[in-house]
Design a protein around this nucleic acid. Structure first.
Lengths: 144, 144
DNA sequence: AAAATACAGGACTTTTTTGTCCTTTATAAC
DNA sequence: GTTATAAAGGACAAAAAAGTCCTGTATTTT
């Protein structure tokens, strides 16, 4: 569904958010360890997320990554996915046809329509804050 | 969503089915032209589909690919997707976690649940025959 | 100011996916 | 039986995705 980069990106963002809620800024090493991702590759993805203003990065000693609590409620899954994978997952044609549209649909267009639409809505309405809550309460997990 | 190979595979299968309904067995060249796909690569995919008994291939002059009309109504999109991409799209975790399950869910597990379930159902219930009908009537398209 | 820390960024490697080409094998037509 | 045709299959090439490594830069601490 999503690329590996995007999966790591979502996992990292959620982890950073949970830690920011506790007042902790977190470093790359900690993040990679906590979400079970390759460190150097994760660094690239965090860079991308920082450029897209999804997370905030601070250089130097005591530096690391963080997300303001106010922003957590505004940042949607869609923004992360869009920044890393683009929007073809919830916008593009199921059979990869560029010319596929409502007026000129591919054979599976209508079959995929509601699914893609539901996916788009979910990604656009889910914010990072709500995803931290289950983790905080120990109901959900980011590892393995 | 799907790999390029899978997209071509679905498109090819639908095209072959429409032609089989007209009593025409179709060759690789024709298929690749009609679905706008790279010929040699398409050959590999057709080979895979034939091995998986999704399409039937005939060698030699007047040979080509075909699907029995009876089988068209039994073959589901799921079988094509499964044969080419595996079932991780509608089975696996949205964040790529192997250990993600109902008892130990990832933070997006429940958000993705109905979407993945709807996708699975759609793929399992959609047969090839019904996908040929729009094409036959000129309501749907496989090209570009 | 110097040293240490931690992210940014560029160059590079590996693996997977996508795609090609050429030889072999089966079969239909003559 | 010979020839022509079309799929099967193996080896290879290109491109994209995944992942690493090293140097530079900002910032904090001493």
């Amino acid at each position: 569904m999503f690329s590996k980069a995007c999966e790591y990106g979502i996992r990292a963002t959620i982890y950073i958010a949970t830690q920011s809620l506790e007042g902790r800024r977190v470093g790359l090493k900690d993040i990679a360890k906590q979400i079970n991702s390759p460190e150097a590759f994760t660094a690239k993805i965090l860079q991308q997320l920082a450029k897209n203003k999804i997370i905030h990065s601070v250089k130097g000693p005591t530096g690391g990554f963080e997300i303001e609590e106010v922003k957590m409620r505004d940042i949607r899954l869609q923004q992360i996915v869009s920044a890393i994978d683009g929007d073809s997952i919830y916008i593009g044609c199921g059979l990869g046809l560029k010319a596929c549209s409502e007026k000129r649909p591919c054979p599976v267009h209508n079959k995929f329509k509601t699914i893609r639409e539901d996916l788009r809505k979910m990604l656009e309405t889910t914010n990072i804050y709500e995803l931290t809550q289950g983790l905080y309460l120990g109901f959900t997990f980011l590892k393995s």
